[in-house]
């Protein structure tokens, strides 16, 4: 049965009609056509679907759309400035070559931004542990860890 879900996505109020069994990630990708959020697994391990919901990084493949009623969601499309300037964390990923195929990247960035808010100067170990819910098959994490360290510092410096 079709039901209505209303939420805010990237600052914009949206309302969609979906089946009750619809996942949040499906609403984001299919109803809103925000395809930067990806699906890489079906057991909530890979983290490619990570978005920010009410200020916290969550896995949108593990949340029913109905659970997000009234929520404030930000996806990777809402991260850069309106003029297209990259967010400090995005810029750090680019500078440190923290991405290759790009598929896990949006989830990595969304999680990293949330993590950096509470870790302005994280250690290598803290960063690696924060990535427990994000899998990458390309980079070996080396440059992702470097990028998040640099991005967190840049965020703390207000960049």
């Amino acid at each position: 049965m079709a039901v209505k879900v209303s939420l805010k996505v990237n600052g914009k109020s949206v309302s969609v009609e979906v089946e009750e069994r619809t996942l949040l990630v499906t609403v984001i990708r299919e109803n809103l056509r925000l395809t930067g959020t990806h699906v890489g697994c079906d057991t909530a391990q890979c983290g490619a679907c990570t978005v920010s919901m009410n200020g916290k990084a969550v896995k949108s493949c593990s949340i029913l759309a109905m659970q997000a009623e009234g929520a404030d969601v930000m996806t990777i499309e809402g991260v850069a400035k309106a003029d297209g300037t990259l967010h400090a964390m995005q810029a750090a990923f680019k500078e440190h070559h923290g991405l290759q195929c790009g598929f896990c990247t949006p989830g990595m960035v969304m999680n990293a931004i949330d993590f950096a808010k509470s870790h302005p100067n994280p250690s290598e170990q803290e960063i690696r542990e924060a990535l427990e819910g994000n899998l990458c098959r390309c980079t070996g994490y080396h440059n992702i860890v470097k990028a998040i360290g640099a991005g967190a510092k840049a965020m703390a410096a207000g960049k």
């Binding site: 850069a80 598929f103 990247t105 949006p106």
Partner: peptide, 18 residues
């Protein structure tokens, strides 16, 4: 720095499922 990164970092990549 990579030319392809901007689109991947902003969710503008176009993978087949997109």
């Amino acid at each position: 720095e990579r030319k392809e990164d901007y689109r991947f970092l902003t969710g503008a990549g176009q993978y087949t499922d997109d």
